[in-house]
């Protein structure tokens, strides 16, 4: 599994704003990777380019070994005509019911199944939304701030569980939380601020799992690398 950017240039349609110029980068292997960078640098844009190659960019984005790419973001909503449970149940095959139960437990949704999406808090909404994407058949799931508004401890638990359940699949996690990215992600593609060259840097994260005890020194070093790179 690989995500490879070769000489990618992209500007916003009908503007002169150049977002990427001859961008080259590679993320390799299954696992939990990250896309990091200051606000407005183009993380979401790059994620969308990966998910939708029909967008007007030049260069090449290749994803060998990746068949299905899904992109989810934190402001997505679910229709309000039915309950969360009803929506989730309609998304699973009988063979996936066990996975659904597990995800409901991992994401802490047990008490919200009878509610309408609108009635949930923003953090709960994001977890429900993530649940339905995790129930899909995907090779790469791009999570654009998908755990925004979720408290740190819950976020940590969810990421660790996802890594455990979905081994062999790829995730590209977009977040502004340096510590989180440094600790849990395998490869961190940092998109650097405007004018910096090279435009991206690929760093190695700690890729901690539930079994690992975080190494504070290495973690801090990685965090510093990320901050300096950005």
């Amino acid at each position: 599994m690989k995500i490879e950017f070769r000489d990618v240039t992209y500007r916003y349609p009908e503007t002169d704003i150049l977002i990427f110029q001859s961008l080259d980068a590679t993320i390799e292997g299954a696992g939990f990777h990250a896309l990091f960078g200051p606000s407005g640098v183009g993380k979401t844009t790059l994620a969308r380019l990966i998910a939708d190659r029909s967008l007007p960019f030049s260069g090449k984005i290749e994803t060998p070994g990746i068949r299905t790419i899904l992109y989810t973001y934190h402001t997505e909503r679910i229709p309000g005509w039915a309950t969360v449970e009803s929506h989730l149940k309609h998304l699973v095959l009988p063979s996936q019911e066990e996975l659904l139960s597990k995800l409901i437990s991992v994401l802490g949704l047990e008490n919200h199944l009878g509610s309408r999406f609108r009635q949930l808090s923003m953090g709960q909404q994001n977890r429900v939304n993530l649940a339905r994407y995790l129930l899909q058949d995907f090779d790469l799931l791009i999570m654009d701030e998908s755990l925004a508004n979720v408290d740190e401890a819950t976020r940590e638990r969810i990421i660790l569980e996802i890594k455990e359940i979905f081994t062999g699949r790829s995730f590209l996690y977009i977040s502004h939380n340096v510590a989180e990215v440094a600790r849990f992600c395998k490869e961190i593609l940092v998109i650097r601020g405007r004018g910096k060259r090279p435009q991206t840097l690929c760093l190695q994260g700690q890729d901690n799992t539930r079994k690992d005890d975080p190494d504070r020194v290495r973690l801090e070093k990685t965090m510093l690398e990320i901050v300096h790179a950005a």
């Binding site: 005509w81 969360v84 199944l113 009878g114 609108r118």
Partner: peptide, 16 residues
């Protein structure tokens, strides 16, 4: 009926 302000009959039973 479609979008009860605080749950509603459909919401309790988890269906419309």
């Amino acid at each position: 009926r479609l979008d009860p302000p605080t749950g509603g009959r459909g919401a309790r039973r988890g269906r419309l």
